[in-house]
Simulated scan of single mutants.
Amino acid sequence: MFRDREEAGRALGEHLQRRLTGESVVLAIPRGGVIIGEYVAAALGAPLDVIVPRKLGAPGNPELAVGALAVADGEEIALVDDRTVIALGVPSSYLQAEIERQRREIERREAAYREGRTPAKLEGRVAVLVDDGIATGLTARAAARAVSRHSPREVVVAVPVAPPETVREFAAEGLRLETLETPSPFGAVGRFYLDFRQVEDDEVKAVLRRHGNG
């Protein structure tokens, strides 16, 4: 259990100081991940930038994920949960329209958060993808695949809390996941914070202004 994102970010930063070597860049997943990322970047002496994966929502129920999308160099990296798509009978035409809609939202959010700054250089660096926690890890996996297109030395997903089954799934896929706690049963990420208030866009922008993205 963490008091808030600041406490979790400081603890995660200390953990990564011991676990990582080489030049790093921190890529935070907005919005809550940016608060975590600020403290991780400070601990690692690394630049901070954002990556904006998006959930692909089900027809009539956008909170239910049928997949996730990230974008790298203009190329879409979409992960689809085939079992959910089949169970719900989601048509391919809907999926394509949802991918296009979320792509536009990714581009809008990245431009808004960066405020004209260029994306961080990833080639040859350890790319550390940070969020305030993951449940299924679908959006984090999409983000990791997108980041790998930029030739980093290594891609590391780092979160304060994740369920043990997701940790095992990441390992099976060859994805490195660093986490502080793996409680079971899991439920929702917010259960493991005393203060899990919503982070606003203006706060994300303020954090990014304080940290050059290198």
Rank of each mutant, 00 (worst) to 15 (best):
I77E: 14
R191C: 02
A87Y: 14
T84S: 06
G124M: 11
A28V: 11
P62R: 09
G13I: 10
G133I: 02
P59F: 12
P164I: 12
A146T: 07
A144N: 05
E63N: 11
V147I: 15
L16P: 08
G89D: 08
I36P: 00
L88P: 11
T84N: 00
L27M: 10
Y193F: 14
A70G: 13
V155L: 08
R209H: 10
G67S: 06
L175W: 01
A206N: 15
I51D: 06
P163E: 04
A65L: 05
T21M: 14
A46I: 11
P163K: 00
P164R: 09
F196Y: 13
R18K: 15
E107W: 01
D49I: 10
I35V: 15
P53G: 09
V189S: 10
A143Q: 01
V147G: 02
E7M: 03
L180G: 02
T118N: 12
K55D: 02
G37K: 05
I77K: 07
V34R: 02
L44N: 11
G212L: 13
T139L: 08
P59E: 06
G89P: 06
H211E: 04
A58C: 09
R117M: 10
A206Q: 14
N213T: 11
F192I: 05
L79A: 01
L180W: 03
D81A: 12
E107N: 04
E173D: 15
A146G: 09
L44K: 13
E178G: 09
A172G: 06
Q198I: 07
V90S: 02
E7A: 11
G33T: 09
E203I: 10
T182V: 10
D131C: 05
E178W: 09
V167D: 08
V156T: 04
L95F: 12
Q102V: 02
E23C: 06
A162S: 14
R10Y: 04
R141K: 13
R145Y: 07
P163C: 04
R3N: 05
G212S: 13
K121Y: 09
T179A: 14
G9C: 10
G13Y: 06
A143D: 02
E173G: 07
G74A: 14
G57N: 09
E154G: 06
D4L: 07
L20F: 14
P53L: 07
V199I: 13
E75T: 15
P164T: 09
L27R: 03
I134S: 00
R176N: 13
V167G: 12
Q198H: 11
V167I: 12
G32L: 01
A8N: 03
P163V: 01
